[in-house]
Write a protein that binds this DNA or RNA. Sequence first.
DNA 1: AGTCCCTGCGCG
DNA 2: AAAGCGCGCAGGGACT
Length: 562
Amino acid sequence: MKTIYFDSETTGLEPFSDRITLIQTYYDGKIRFNKPKPENITRLKNLLETTLVVGHNLKFDLKFLKHHFNIEPTHLFDTYIAEVLISGGQKAGQKGASTLETVAWDYAGIKLKKDQDMRQSFKGRELTQEQIEYAAMDVAVLPEIHAKQQIQLKKLCLEKVFATEMSCIPATVWLELSGTPIDLDGAQKLEKETRGKLELSRLNVLTILKQSGYRNLDLEGMPAVNLNSPAKLLKALKDIGLELASTNVSTLSAMKHPAGKALKEYRKHQKLLNTFLEKLPKHINPATGRIHANFNQYGTLPGRFSCSRPNLQQLPKDKNIRALFKGNNGSKIITADYSQIELRILAEVSKEPKFLELFNSGGDLHKLTASLIFNKQLDHVSKEERNIAKTINFGISYGMGGGRLQANLKDNGIEISPDEARKYIDTFFKNYPKVKEYLDNAGQSAVRNSQIRNIAGRLIKYRPATNESERADILREGKNNPIQSLNADILKGAMGRLYHRLKTHEIRLINIVHDELVFEVPGEHAETASLIVKEEMEAAGREYLKSVPVIAEVKVGDVWQK
DNA sequence: AGTCCCTGCGCG
DNA sequence: AAAGCGCGCAGGGACT
């Protein structure tokens, strides 16, 4: 396939309000400058959609191309993502670590000048000779970077993961341009309600402090304490005889004093109001009436997406919040998530016979763990015993200790002794010896080599440990990262597949949350689309999970579901 | 006013 | 706070 080196200049960062001023291409030994005039578009579309397009952070340019000209290249080589991948994820989420300037210097020894003044200057109507020379350099430098990165990717055996990443870019463009619909009226109503509850809970806390003898009062005779300051709060609690190590939820839960419960209530409303209800409406794009968050495809060390402005991956599961995300004009929302994907991955990589048997027979792993730990028949396991097992299944596998297990359970209203906690952990590993063997090996190899791979071949590098504490960190990360990162590869694979199957029929990808895809679909296509979503998500999982079934649970409704 | 770190907490 | 891992965001507080 023919290779085109590609870049574009725009008047700003926002595809809905800014425009492309220049498209630079470099092929057949010639740099070309294209003004985005109507007579050029058909030729450009044909060119870019039938060639390998090489560029730096293509998501940015592709959003403009798709939105303004309906140009959708799909054969891609992104030198930005390549750079993060080659670094073993170390450059993920690090500002400036993989800019074109940095990469051009590292691979080609070329200093690109792309300061703020230059960027501003592209807003002008006509480009100066100097500007054109700078714009030319941006594509002229690409062939050498491309060639050297190809060698690196091959040397590090990263070609397959890289292909997955490239297949995901058009889906990410689709996701960011789609945006997420939000019910503004509903959000404002909920904000008002929550504001009322916050004020009540604030007065409740202050009253309790006063009744407990707190003496530092304000002009109205109420305790003068900033409840939002952990340091000040700690002091205030000390003044009424409560010596605490922290003011976090676990500590508050353990308190007998009524201030604990009251503060938890206050915190809940505070978080809901200040982080979500007050902020989400500010992110609505005036051009589309929707929220277009920034999804960073390689935003984390193990290769997961990160999301910001706003972070749509951390919205509360609270039903009232999720219900704010509903389809426009009667469209349906498809919520699709992988069932227990990380535990299935652990089964696959450890080949633990009890895990494999369980998943292949469609059983309940938490129940099985409970029956083994408490030495009971499966149908005699109580709800509480299953909950303990669930905490263990999710936590212990990644190095959680007895103390933490005890505390986690306590947060769920289950009290056990330190001896019991230790015994549960021992019993877990005794019953699942291959899980123990896999996790021990993974952790030790991560420490020994300062890197580890998942079974898709993705590389995760660590800064070599310089002390015992860092060594312990890598030991734990090495157990978790290959599992978490394979989850990311599976999701990216599913996104790439679904982009090709669903981009038509006005179907929009509106959110992704690590093991979950959310779509907005016109009612008449909802049932068909949900079948395709399930089919492709499971097929993406089966590319790596050969010993256990992969199950995607797909729901169709009016709103985003839990 | 901007930057950094800390505590705390939302999600998978 | 605790030997789970991965993130982003808010508010406080110290600093320049």
